[in-house]
């Protein structure tokens, strides 16, 4: 059930240039949220910024009554967020979206590009808690932009990184690094989740049949309501029942998690 609530900032810290971690006290959302879900957040009184902005849940801490958001400062809204400090209040709508369903046993892999690592942390934590093996693959432009590496290490059997400048992983594609691990360690890989790069998500499509896993992508689209009401946040999904062969599904309500094979890229 969606809620519209106020949350209180516990801390905000800079984790990398232009990247912040925001810890918010909001027990009801922390209790209800599932990995892969997100919130609509508004942290400003400015009238020129109308809409709340969508952010994935980086960590969900029901016992502490907290949620964490890892975000990149991009435009006006995120710049305003970065100015808020401990004790200040934010407006939240959520938890939004369907979230993910973990397999009962076996292993999962997480492939995150840049800020795409954000929603994967909550998945890693839940999977580890359920006794699943987690393989994490992170890529970014350069070392300093690899996000959450230490946190991921806590929940993962392996964390493999790659940077575009070649300093890490020889700058190789995460899908290639994933294949390496599958070939070398043959984990019983059930599910792969990816976020942050359309190219990565597409690259997983042919690997599914070859290695017997199902891959899901966490999509982003511009949003207004985050509740399924405005039909503004759609993505194109295969739909054999329609004469066009596709239909538009709402990322905020039908996603944001979609099987990579169902998305029309």
């Amino acid at each position: 059930m969606l809620m519209y609530l106020q949350g209180k900032i516990v801390t905000q810290k800079v984790v990398a240039p232009e990247y912040n971690l925001l810890v918010i006290e909001q027990p009801a959302i922390a209790k209800a949220a599932q990995p892969g879900q997100f919130v609509m957040l508004k942290a400003w009184e400015r009238r020129d910024l109308v809409l709340p902005r969508p952010f994935s849940l980086y960590r969900i801490l029901p016992r502490e009554g907290q949620i964490q958001i890892l975000y990149k400062i991009r435009g006006q809204g995120t710049a305003e967020m970065a100015r808020r400090g401990a004790g200040e209040e934010v407006e939240l709508i959520g938890p939004s979206g369907k979230g993910i369903t973990l397999p009962a046993t076996g292993a999962i892999a997480l492939l995150g590009r840049g800020i795409g690592a954000a929603p994967l942390m909550a998945i890693a934590e839940a999977a580890k808690g359920q006794g699943l093996e987690v393989y994490t693959f992170l890529s970014a432009r350069e070392r300093s932009l690899l996000l959450g590496e230490e946190d991921f290490a806590r929940y993962s059997r392996r964390v493999v990184t790659s940077t575009d400048d070649g300093q890490e992983g020889g700058g190789r594609l995460l899908t290639d690094l994933l294949v390496d691990i599958i070939e070398k360690e043959s984990p019983s890989l059930q599910r792969v989740y990816t976020c942050g790069s359309r190219r990565l998500a597409r690259g997983l499509i042919p690997l599914q049949a070859r290695y017997g896993f199902i891959a899901y992508v966490l999509l982003e689209e511009h949003m207004a309501c985050g509740t399924g009401a405005c039909k503004g946040c759609v993505c194109k999904v295969k739909d054999p029942a329609r004469p066009e062969g596709y239909s538009y599904q709402k990322v905020c309500q039908d996603g944001a998690v979609f099987p990579v094979g169902e998305v029309v890229w």
Partner: peptide
């Protein structure tokens, strides 16, 4: 009606 291709939304000053 399937609707228009995305992106379908953008925020402008004080507007949608």
């Amino acid at each position: 009606t399937p609707g228009n291709p995305p992106p379908r939304l953008t925020e402008t000053y004080s507007g949608l």
